[in-house]
Amino acid sequence: MPPSTADRRDVLVRALLAGPGAAVATLLAVMGLSAALPPGPAGIDPITIPLVALPFIWAALFFHACLDPAPRRAALASLALCAVCAALVALRHGGAPAAAVP
């Protein structure tokens, strides 16, 4: 049976979410995590922890976009993550510089 229009749209939304969507959301999440983390005793946790977390964040977003039964819900979750992280980045750049080295 040929795929219906709804099925095609479903595949397109998932492809956009899992491809460019996951890439943009991962970058924003890394920056948001950097803004949210305390410097730590060496002052480098906001640099190193987001970088180590990057592949895990991408994998979570990628597989969620592919496997969630409702692609719209996956899109909303990604958008919410992006909004929170963008807000954290905006707050950082509106305030004092962080990651001060002791």
């Binding site: 730590g40 005793p41 060496a42 002052g43 480098i44 946790d45 190193t48 970088l51 180590v52 080295v101």
Partner: peptide, 12 residues
């Protein structure tokens, strides 16, 4: 990484 031990430095 870093001047003293930290979670991020150890992980990286």
């Amino acid at each position: 990484f870093g001047r003293v031990a930290s979670v991020g430095g150890t992980l990286y």
